[in-house]
């Protein structure tokens, strides 16, 4: 059986909120290392990969592999019934029909309990190899969100160019063009504002802003976001969580036909 207790319901609320517009039905794969999710969007150009390590829960117990097929719309409805600070416990039997969620208020003696019916989801899993990317940019997640939002007002696509000069986000649209240039930057007092660019070779790739704006819904999960790029391969956008847990998004680049 599965029993996983999260100190704050907020974490799961934010994760689900960040991915629910991209993917609808997905399997939460539970085993002794934690709870993982991998799902592609309908057009198969974007992929979500979530890992909540067992260390992110206390306690965490999962005796055998369980796939919980959950509709994220349903999960969102139930998670709205939890206060952000509630303690959240996920429970399921070994061959479950439902997943059970218990919300406990640390301040009051209120305990609420919900069951969500599970679905059989036949999901394709992709093997994503560990990749040495040509450029890795670590930057404030709010800054990345702002760039994507600002440029999406002008264009459907953004080109991300990374060179030893820094990183340039460029777009061209009907009304004109825009570009934002960032260089490596260290703020000793506010390290969350740091921009770090790790480059082994120059990279230039174009991506759909619609998807990037969508990924940025995860900004509330982490102060910093990591963008990993190599020419001609999908972009990795990573939001690191505590205990080596993470929320990652992959996006296929736009290429000439």
């Amino acid at each position: 059986m599965l029993e996983a207790r999260l100190e704050q319901a907020n974490l799961l609320k934010k994760v689900v909120d960040a991915i629910k517009d991209l993917v609808q039905d997905c399997n939460f794969d539970c085993n002794d290392s934690g709870i993982a999710l991998q799902a592609m969007d309908n057009s198969h150009v974007a992929l979500v990969s979530m890992m909540l390590k067992s260390e992110s829960f206390s306690p965490f117990r999962c005796d055998r592999n369980i796939a919980l097929g959950i509709n994220l719309g349903s999960l969102t409805k139930v998670l709205r019934c939890a206060q952000n600070e509630d303690i959240l416990t996920l429970k399921a039997e070994d061959a479950p029909d439902v997943v059970n969620l218990v919300f406990e208020s640390a301040e009051t003696d209120r305990i609420s309990e919900y069951d969500i019916k599970l679905m059989d989801i036949d999901q394709e899993h992709l093997g994503i190899p560990e990749t040495e990317y040509a450029a890795t940019i670590t930057m404030p997640s709010a800054e990345f969100q702002r760039i994507c939002r600002d440029l999406s007002a002008l264009s459907e696509s953004v080109s991300i160019e990374c060179s030893k000069e820094g990183v340039k986000f460029n777009c061209q649209g009907d009304i004109g063009s825009g570009s934002i240039h960032l260089r490596s930057h260290t703020n000793v007092d506010k390290p969350e504002l740091n921009v770090e660019i790790d480059l082994t070779e120059p990279v230039s790739l174009t991506f759909s802003l619609k998807y990037l704006v969508n990924f940025c819904k995860a900004s509330g999960l982490s102060n910093q976001v990591k963008l990993c790029l190599s020419n001609e391969v999908p972009l990795l956008v990573e939001y690191a969580l505590s205990n080596n847990s993470y929320l990652r998004f992959y996006l296929a680049p736009k290429i000439g036909d």
Binding site: H44, E124, H125, L126, D257
Partner: peptide, 14 residues
């Protein structure tokens, strides 16, 4: 025209 390829072109099925 710019196209986005299916991710299955980049990653193999696990």
């Amino acid at each position: 025209v710019l196209l986005q390829k299916n991710l299955k072109n980049y990653y193999i099925k696990a």
